[in-house]
């Protein structure tokens, strides 16, 4: 279908790619974002030497991956999928089914997880026709339908149905941890790329105004679908890594709505449309959750709820926007 006069990713006319790279590195914000990504990978790569609770680190990374996925979907294209966890679960089950039923190795299993979530995203791509809140709730319905599908006894031959998944055949704490770090690295790099590439500009253009974007020569449907698929792939990769780390789980665990909710709040709190926002949002809120949420959860949910209200009303662009304005004032 792709005509030869069309490409997905726009090119700079008459610029050699080498110049392009130099140009990127002259861009201070690109260097900053790339540095954030590298520091992040470094922290988690050596994380296990200062934090023995590796699962805490894994959860932190998984939420960062999901928050970045929300960032791509909502921050760059304006679609907020409440059912984002559907892709996470699809990735987890892609990993589980491919390794335990089809006996592929763990790494092909991770790929299978991503592929499954991408396929689900493509099947659901007609939802992108829906506007704002319709889309948000429709995606939620899709995720709920998916978990019922996975746990239905007639799917038992493939998914093991309600009995849940068991990946003990490929269980490997070390390798699954490292894979999660690599996954976080890939996801963060993808967001850095999105933010600084013409493709990212095109996404933001579509978000700002569809018809102007179309008149600028952007294939709105294709670009948007591609972004949706990237976002789903991120969640799928996160889900596959999580499945590998945790190894024994029930359908409800990997399709839990709370996961979507957390990822959305983390991303919004930190600031969407940025690289650093979802990371900071996850660290701060998941940190608070672990520190106080566990002892007084019902108050924590109350605080969470009120926090959302405050964010929406007073800092709709998240912590990153606050940080940017403070930083801006200081440097002036």
């Amino acid at each position: 279908m792709l005509r030869d006069d069309e490409t997905l990713v726009g090119e700079i006319p008459g610029t050699a790619s080498k110049d392009r790279v130099t140009q990127l590195f002259r861009n201070r914000s690109f260097v900053g974002d790339a540095a954030v990504a590298l520091v992040l990978i470094g922290v988690f790569a050596f994380g296990r030497s200062f934090e023995a609770n590796t699962l805490l680190l894994v959860n932190l990374m998984v939420y960062m991956i999901l928050a970045q996925g929300i960032n791509v979907s909502y921050g760059f294209t304006g679609y907020l999928p409440f059912g984002f966890v559907g892709f996470f679960g699809a990735g987890a089950y892609g990993m589980a089914v491919s390794t335990s039923k089809f006996h592929v190795g763990a790494y092909p299993g991770l790929v299978a997880g991503v592929v499954v979530s991408v396929v689900v995203a493509l099947i659901l791509s007609p939802l992108l026709r829906l506007r704002g809140s319709y889309f948000a709730i429709a995606s939620l319905a899709a995720a709920e339908a998916l978990v019922l599908l996975v746990s239905n006894p007639s799917a038992q031959g493939i998914t093991n149905g309600a009995y849940g998944a068991n990946l003990s055949s490929v269980f490997n704490p070390g390798a699954s941890y490292v894979s999660t770090v690599v996954a976080l690295g890939l996801v963060t790099a993808a967001v850095v790329w999105l933010k600084h590439s013409p493709f990212g500009l095109a996404l933001r253009a579509i978000k700002a105004d569809r018809s102007s974007a179309a008149m600028s020569g952007i294939n709105v449907v294709r670009v948007r679908t591609f972004a949706w698929v990237i976002s789903a792939a991120m969640a799928g990769l996160g889900g596959a890594c999580y499945a590998w780390v945790i190894s024994v789980f029930y359908p409800g665990d990997v399709f839990s709505l709370t996961t979507s909710v957390f990822a959305i709040i983390f991303a919004l709190f930190g600031g969407i449309g940025t690289v650093v926002g979802p990371i900071v949002g996850t660290v701060v809120l998941y940190g608070i959750y672990n520190a106080i949420g566990i002892t007084v959860p019902q108050y924590f949910q109350l605080i969470y709820g009120l926090l959302i209200v405050v964010i929406v009303l007073f800092v709709p662009r998240g912590l990153a926007s606050l940080g940017a304005s403070v930083f801006g004032r200081m440097s002036r």
């Binding site: 540095a35 954030v36 520091v39 992040l40 470094g42 922290v43 988690f44 994380g47 200062f50 934090e51 609770n53 805490l56 932190l60 650093v276 990371i279 900071v280 660290v283 701060v284 998941y286 940190g287 672990n290 520190a291 106080i292 566990i294 002892t295």
Partner: peptide, 25 residues
Amino acid sequence: KLHVTLVTGAVLAAACGSSSKTTTA
């Protein structure tokens, strides 16, 4: 609890490019 807070704090600090807190944690 303190411990968890410190560790998450450390990651945050690291993400912001500061190194002093990491050592403490």
